[in-house]
Design a binder for these strands. Sequence first.
DNA 1: TGCTGTGAATCGCTTCACAGCC
DNA 2: GGCTGTGAAGCGATTCACAGCA
Lengths: 254, 254
Amino acid sequence: MATGRTHRPATRSRGIPEATVARLPLYLRALTALSERSVPTVSSEELAAAAGVNSAKLRKDFSYLGSYGTRGVGYDVEYLVYQISRELGLTQDWPVVIVGIGNLGAALANYGGFASRGFRVAALIDADPGMAGKPVAGIPVQHTDDLEKIIQDNGVSIGVIATPAGAAQQVCDRLVAAGVTSILNFAPTVLTVPDGVDVRKVDLSIELQILAFHEQRKAGEETAAGDGAHPAAARDASSADQGPDGDVPAVMPA
Amino acid sequence: MATGRTHRPATRSRGIPEATVARLPLYLRALTALSERSVPTVSSEELAAAAGVNSAKLRKDFSYLGSYGTRGVGYDVEYLVYQISRELGLTQDWPVVIVGIGNLGAALANYGGFASRGFRVAALIDADPGMAGKPVAGIPVQHTDDLEKIIQDNGVSIGVIATPAGAAQQVCDRLVAAGVTSILNFAPTVLTVPDGVDVRKVDLSIELQILAFHEQRKAGEETAAGDGAHPAAARDASSADQGPDGDVPAVMPA
DNA sequence: TGCTGTGAATCGCTTCACAGCC
DNA sequence: GGCTGTGAAGCGATTCACAGCA
């Protein structure tokens, strides 16, 4: 795509596999829950179940971080929480701006999962002058005109785009020009960014379409393989692959 | 996890690779945009750029669907839109329920990307009696008590969970018992479901944590490799791999 | 004995490179 | 000549299976 560049010659050195990085937040979440229940240690088997992956994968993942477990015993919960947090860079404070305060932007502003992980919503930005000053989640919305100043004054390096698709690229360009180097994009568009800027996207309609694909297939097999209609029974409780895990995540370091 | 089951022996037969399925919605989006601009044909190179992938991957993906292109020319836009829609099961109507009408649930209810792709929000469900009857996105919210009846009356097979983490598993169990076989989970929990039920998850805070990981690494390299601070320049416009394609996640503008 | 840590085998996806067709 | 379709090579991630240590 775009430039010919050998594509990712760097980022590989001395590194944790991208697939592993994508799972660390999952482990962290499970560990945090155990920590709150004051569980002191956990085995790879138990933790894997809580995180929804298999234990071999979990052990391999942890092996990239170092040897934090004790053979015959398991992992110390608190210690692991700390190590993973550090590895993910969550021991520091990350000021974040959210651009586009519609329904979704407001939902994100109100989302509790940020603060608890070191992310701080430094500002909310919207293009509608009518929104300016209105508080959302206790934070007054500011106008797009001040975007650059806001980014710089707050030392923001992570931006969240929750604007309509049409405005996304322009907002993205301004964020990047102002110094943002990581973008979480909720707008259904492919963003073009310079080297060195990471973009991750979240697109709900894509997830639904993937579900529809499998759903359709199920319906087909049902008629073909003559199986009863509604399951309802079959409590085999196999916590199936949860979403995009296996799916290679894909960020890109740039 | 859970049962030992050989883990997904099925789902594999006669199939399009999962990674390909996850990209089809991306191609569809790009093709729809071209269609709206009345572009009649497109080359793999052009379409790949619009979708944010490389052309070899795109051609390989399409090869799993069949041979829909013309050598020396490219792909017929309208025809491809149809073929991909059919493959994804979007030529039929998918009634969907959203459970948990907080900020996020409301944002999802208002999301326009559903209707345009064959998804129809059949009902909004919330546990708060105070919400009952209140219209959100023009649809009156119904109480959780009626969940089973709503699912059955509307023939719903896809459910979206946007409740707090604590309520998610219970809601999931009820959805599944009522006949739902595909679940899109926004709650930060691992859901356990019987065989035959698909779960995909979207967790915003996970995406942010992955960005933080790379952001932290950049900061480290900066000091180490003595590179200037803010980029701002370097317009190398390499539309890097956009997020969880192979992987995963998801959503919407608002 | 029990559970971690990890080489080796395997699997699936991506990329290459070019034959085949318009 | 140009662009698709695809075998084959390459590569990263997953899984296996067991050695190593508490």
